[in-house]
Amino acid sequence: MKIPILRLGEILLTSIQVDLTDAEVMEFQSSVLHTISEVEARGLALDITAMEVVDSFMARTINDTASMARLLGAEVVVCGMHPSVALTLVEMGRGLIGVDATFNLDEGLSRLRKRIAQRGDSMLGEDDRHERSS
């Protein structure tokens, strides 16, 4: 099962909709990271609305993927965590997910755009200026 990675301007959007095996999770992680570096994405939105069970392995992978993406230079948000998932993760131990989270994808995207604008290295900004001057 390959998880699609969609490009929305300078943001990459992925949504985990199915039960993944640990091997598929690792494959997903590596393809997300490669795509970020390939297109020099400024942001990554990880939508987990459809995930009802996140075990410690999955939580660690989400965490790791977020830190790796940040190391590459992308901002990361996790969107749409199910309340049961939040309860379970905290009940299991520490708050496993140390990444920025938003209620839904919509807010996730606007948070990413805001942060990219703050950084001031938006690719779109440059393109826009280019178009206006030409």
Binding site: D22, E52, V53, V54, D55, S56, F57, P83, S84, V85, L87, T88, E91, M92
Partner: peptide, 26 residues
């Protein structure tokens, strides 16, 4: 998850069971 929900456990508790089973199976 199915068995826990069928049994009448609350959703959150059913997810607790499913997650615990996931940990043990892993």
């Amino acid at each position: 998850l199915l068995m826990a929900l069928d049994l009448g456990l609350k959703r959150t508790e059913a997810y607790y069971v499913a997650t615990a089973v996931s940990e043990l199976a892993t």
